[in-house]
C-alpha cells in the first residue's frame, strides 16, 4: 500500500484541530470543486482534498490513519501489527488496496448498504464518470469507442478495489460538445443483488481546423476577394458531408452570415443544425503592378464613401 500524507494535502499540521480541518477543507473545496471551479486540474486536486478530508474529518478514521505513522508520500508501507484488528478493518491483503478505498470501508462507508434476502450485505455499484474526446466527423457520423477504465468495485467482503473494465459503446450521431450520455449498468458491479452502477460519458469535441461548433450549428470563415463581394459570385464551400456550391449575392458585406440550412451536425432524433459561412473580405498582401493600376483607377473614379456616417454624427 502506498502512503499518502493527508495532512500535507490540506496544508495542515498533524495536531490540527477538527474545526481547522473543516475550515481548510471548505476553503479548498470552494477553490477546486469540479462542479464550480475553473482551475486547471480542479478535478484531480479536489479528489485529493476530499479523500484527505473524508478520513481526517471522522475521529475513528483519523485515529486509525494517525496510527499508520508518518511516511514519505508514495512510499510503500505496511500498517503496524494489530492495526487491522484494533480498527476492525476486516481481513484483506494490504498489497493491492488504495489508501482511500481502505478508509472508505470505515464507519460511514456502508451507509448505502442493504440486506439481500439471504442476509448478506447488498450494496449498489458505484457510478463512474469519464470524458470522451471525439472529432467533428465522429459527431457527424456517430462512432464506436473503447474505454479501459479502473472502476471502484466491492469484493465479496464489501471492500472497494479498482477493477479494470473494458467498455465498448456506440456514440450515436448528433452527440455534440458537452452532451452527457449514460451507459446503464456499466459502472461498478453491485454487491449481492445491489443495482449495478452507471457509466456517464461527457462528450468533448476536438477543435476542427475549419468548422467552429455551437450546439449543432457550425460556423465557417468564408474569405472573399473585394471584387467577389462587390459583384457577387458562386463559391465552393466545404461541409461535413462534402463540398457544396454557395451563391454569394452582389454587395455582400464583411461579417455577414450566409446560412446553409441543414448543413450542420445532425440532431439526436431528427433534423440537422445549420452551417453559417461568415464573410471576410480579404485583400492580397502583395499587389502586382497591373492590379495596383486598376485599384488606382477605381479609387480615382469611385464616389463610394464608406465613412459617410461619421460626418452625420455617427447615426
Amino acid at each position: 500500500m502506498k502512503y499518502k500524507d493527508y495532512y500535507s494535502t490540506l496544508g495542515l499540521e498533524r495536531n490540527a484541530k477538527a474545526e481547522d480541518i473543516k475550515k481548510t477543507y471548505r476553503k479548498l473545496a470552494r477553490k477546486y470543486h469540479p462542479d464550480v471551479s475553473k482551475e486547471p486540474d480542479a478535478e484531480e486536486k479536489f479528489k485529493e482534498v476530499s479523500e484527505a478530508y473524508e478520513t481526517l474529518s471522522n475521529p475513528e478514521k483519523r485515529a486509525a490513519y494517525d496510527q499508520l505513522g508518518s511516511h514519505r508520500p508514495g512510499q510503500d508501507f505496511q500498517p503496524p501489527p494489530n492495526w487491522q484488528k484494533e480498527f476492525s478493518a476486516g481481513q484483506f491483503s494490504f498489497d493491492d488496496i488504495d489508501l482511500s478505498d481502505l478508509f472508505a470501508q470505515f464507519g460511514g462507508g456502508r451507509q448505502r448498504a442493504g440486506r439481500a434476502p439471504d442476509g448478506k450485505i447488498s450494496m449498489p455499484g458505484q457510478d463512474f464518470e469519464v470524458q470522451v474526446h471525439i472529432t467533428l466527423e465522429n459527431a457527424y457520423h456517430g462512432t464506436e469507442i473503447e474505454l479501459d477504465l479502473a472502476i471502484p468495485e466491492y469484493d465479496e467482503n464489501g471492500f472497494l478495489h479498482r477493477v479494470p473494465h473494458k467498455v465498448k459503446a456506440r456514440i450515436p450521431k448528433g452527440a455534440t460538445d458537452g452532451q452527457r450520455l449514460r451507459l446503464p449498468g456499466k459502472g461498478g458491479k453491485g454487491l449481492n443483488g445491489g443495482r449495478d452502477g452507471d457509466l456517464y460519458l461527457d462528450i468533448v469535441l476536438h477543435p476542427h481546423p475549419l468548422f467552429r461548433v455551437s450546439g449543432h450549428d457550425l460556423y465557417l470563415d468564408l474569405p472573399l476577394a473585394p471584387w467577389e463581394a462587390v459583384l457577387g459570385t458562386t463559391v465552393e464551400v466545404p461541409t461535413p458531408a462534402g463540398a457544396v456550391r454557395l451563391k454569394v449575392p452582389a454587395g455582400t458585406q464583411a461579417g455577414q452570415k450566409l446560412r446553409l440550412p441543414k448543413r450542420g451536425l445532425p440532431k439526436p432524433r431528427s433534423g440537422e443544425g445549420d452551417l453559417y459561412a461568415i464573410v471576410q473580405i480579404t485583400v492580397p498582401s502583395v499587389v502586382g503592378e497591373k492590379d495596383s493600376a486598376l485599384y488606382k483607377q477605381l479609387a480615382d473614379n469611385s464616389s463610394f464613401n464608406p465613412r459617410g456616417h461619421f460626418a452625420a454624427g455617427g447615426v
Partner: peptide, 15 residues
Amino acid sequence: MRVELTEVAWLDETH
C-alpha cells in the same frame, strides 16, 4: 476477450 457493444441513453430532452 470479446467486449459487448453497449447502446447509450441520451441525457437530453428526448427522454
